[in-house]
């Protein structure tokens, strides 16, 4: 009856998915998410995409969008995906901080983690929960991306293959974007007592760490490199890249995630349950 780390992680992941798709609280989250994205898709994204389509033929379009800081929108083969990409780069990191805040903290406070820790290793618990929240967010991204995809091909079915290509690049890139945010929340969740505390700490880290590093780097310039460790450091660069180009800086979120997960695991191994 020996079961391994992978099997334990899969079981934990399965149970967390059940939390989203088979509990009343999960349905409430899903309904809210769908409503929010309904408005984002049918108003900002659709109208912005229409505007881009119309402006594309204009000689001044490039300079107009460059002036607004959205010049890269014109690089997208399908404007709707370009607009989606810009929205998603803001929306999903924030969603990640909120949704992944309670990976282990409330279970630890309630003592539920003790029942689990008697049966699985702390690694299985920590990484099992981390991967669960990644899968959940992947599915949520897939849901909105599919809706955008349908919106595009309903208007012009000839864009089917380009849309598949665009959607795939966004799916992979957004998944990479949320990796370090989810890892940061995993590390915070093993440290703090509640999801609210984890969110507050995430906002503080996000907001002030860059400032502190900038201050320190004015004395010792080499410390400026530490900014690369802040989740979301690459987001402004990503906003200027389109489709598969964004993978050029995929190493940044992967590196951030590995470091944050190592920190989280270190805390989890030493944490009293």
């Amino acid at each position: 009856m020996k079961t391994g780390l992978i099997n334990h992680m899969l079981l934990i992941c399965q149970f967390e998915l059940k939390r989203l798709f088979a509990t009343r609280k999960g349905w409430l989250y899903l309904a809210t998410y769908i409503i929010v994205w309904y408005f984002i898709l049918f108003y900002p994204i659709r109208y912005a995409a229409d505007l881009l389509d119309r402006q594309r033929s204009s000689a001044h379009a490039g300079s107009f969008f460059e002036f607004l800081g959205f010049g890269s929108l014109l690089d997208w083969a399908i404007p709707a995906f370009g607009v989606y990409w810009q929205f998603a780069l803001i929306f999903f990191p924030i969603m990640s901080v909120v949704i992944a805040a309670d990976q282990t903290c409330s279970d630890r406070q309630r003592g539920t983690l003790r029942f689990l820790a008697l049966r699985v290793s702390r690694d299985a618990l920590f990484f099992g929960r981390y991967f669960s929240y990644l899968v959940i967010q992947f599915l949520l991204i897939l849901l909105t991306l599919s809706a955008t995809f349908l919106l595009v091909i309903f208007r012009d079915v000839s864009l089917f293959s380009v849309a598949i290509n665009n959607a795939s690049s966004i799916l992979i890139n957004l998944f990479l974007v949320i990796l370090p945010f989810t890892a940061m929340m995993a590390a915070l969740s093993v440290t703090v007592k509640s999801a609210r505390q984890a969110t507050v700490w995430a906002v503080l880290i996000w907001s002030f760490l860059a400032g502190i590093i900038s201050l320190l780097s004015s004395y010792l310039p080499v410390l400026g490199m530490l900014k690369v460790l802040i989740p979301g450091y690459q987001l402004s660069q990503l906003a200027q890249l389109s489709e598969w180009e964004a993978l050029q800086i995929a190493y940044i979120p992967v590196l951030q995630s590995l470091i944050l997960l190592a920190i989280g695991r270190w805390i989890m191994q030493r944490q009293a349950l």
Partner: peptide, 9 residues
Amino acid sequence: PQDAWFDPA
């Protein structure tokens, strides 16, 4: 364990 409760969800 003392004071350990199940997940209410």
